[in-house]
Design a protein around this nucleic acid. Sequence first.
DNA 1: TATTGTTGTTAGACTTATCTAAACTTTTAT
DNA 2: ATAAAAGTTTAGATAAGTCTAACAACAATA
Lengths: 220, 220
Amino acid sequence: MPMSSPAKENYLKAIYALSNELENVTLSKLSERLRVSNPTANSMIKSLKELNWVNYEKYRPISLTDEGKKQAVKIVRRHRLAEMFLVEKMGFNWSEVHDIAEEMEHIKSSLFFDRMDEILGFPERDPHGSPIPDKQGKVLHHNFSKLSEASVGSKVRLMALGSSSRDFLKFLDNRNLELGTEIKVKSIEAFDQSMEVSYNSLAPTTFSRDICDRLLVLPL
Amino acid sequence: MPMSSPAKENYLKAIYALSNELENVTLSKLSERLRVSNPTANSMIKSLKELNWVNYEKYRPISLTDEGKKQAVKIVRRHRLAEMFLVEKMGFNWSEVHDIAEEMEHIKSSLFFDRMDEILGFPERDPHGSPIPDKQGKVLHHNFSKLSEASVGSKVRLMALGSSSRDFLKFLDNRNLELGTEIKVKSIEAFDQSMEVSYNSLAPTTFSRDICDRLLVLPL
DNA sequence: TATTGTTGTTAGACTTATCTAAACTTTTAT
DNA sequence: ATAAAAGTTTAGATAAGTCTAACAACAATA
Ligand SMILES: [Mn+2]
Ligand SMILES: [Mn+2]
Ligand SMILES: [Mn+2]
Ligand SMILES: [Mn+2]
């Protein structure tokens, strides 16, 4: 009875991520996120319950047990360390690293990841601004707000991303937007909440609500 | 029909390695090397034949097709680059890297390995002295001889290892033997072919025939 | 509260990679 | 040339992880 496996680790990670996004993690949200069918997720949840990694009763929402959360955080740590290593030490762009990290995270060697951590100088965030859990599993809890919540005239600094899809990252690359960039809100369109913003002393641009919801910022 | 998989890649690599060790690669040599049962190897060989990666007729020896060899060399390249990267860029000892590389080699990103290659300065050999195939699949063919074939009074330089098992590497670490070390053959015991050797200006030591067979050297 | 639509479960099937036991071929030794 | 030993294949089973089709439960709403 193999305790862990890449598939199980991916489920744990998905449940962990969904727990931070939704009130209740449901089977269909989980299967949608992992792009598997409902029955597939259902049967995997049964295995995870068997391992005491999730709490689950038929037809009820899914949650991680303490042990399950510990496992999930371990994989999140590995994923984010891998992404950071790829960007900082191997010259990859932040839009290229997710899929590689998705595979690296399953390598069975704590030392491999602790060594990365050390070489990187124990970074607090990954290339997309997400916190990297430390070796003990402690996760830095951040309090960034969405750019979409900023008011006209305010100035903010881009700290993290609410999505790391390749398309979104490419969009940001094209606009020369990176973590740390200072953004000024020029105006907000009442009809669709799109924002006119400026940064890097460039001519103002317009960002849709969708974009602004995924830019996590700190007020300056 | 997934073309490749970690399991298939491990089989290709094992067949490739055995081809360089034996006249004929037989099913039982293969299953022994991979620590699987004969029927398991037999059924995998059928799949590999289906993919046109091996030549195989019932009861006859196994060989790689051109395409199979290409695939095998690709994985060998990835394994050896990973080992080299772990040693040179991540501070691992040569005895710690094999198992991690055994997992890394299956990551599906050519760029990941080409980037390692570049960062390492396109090394010709891995930490155990084995040649690293280049991006085009060309393998540096070396002509080292076994220490066991050296004659009394001769001086040689350790260039590569005929085995990279953890125990063997630990043995070499304990004796402060590393690639590049100059070794002088003091005497050979007629009974068991064990050799009295000296290196690093240390007091002479005795190496068994088993050891001397696995030390690949160049005459000086 | 009864109907309906959404969500979750069960049943049954498939693929890959593995195993053991039994049968069959090939090789080796008398 | 036979018989024994060694090596290989077939048959049948299992486990993980996936699927579709059909059915059941829940939640929303009329
Ligand atoms: Mn990622
Ligand atoms: Mn993954
Ligand atoms: Mn190795
Ligand atoms: Mn491998």
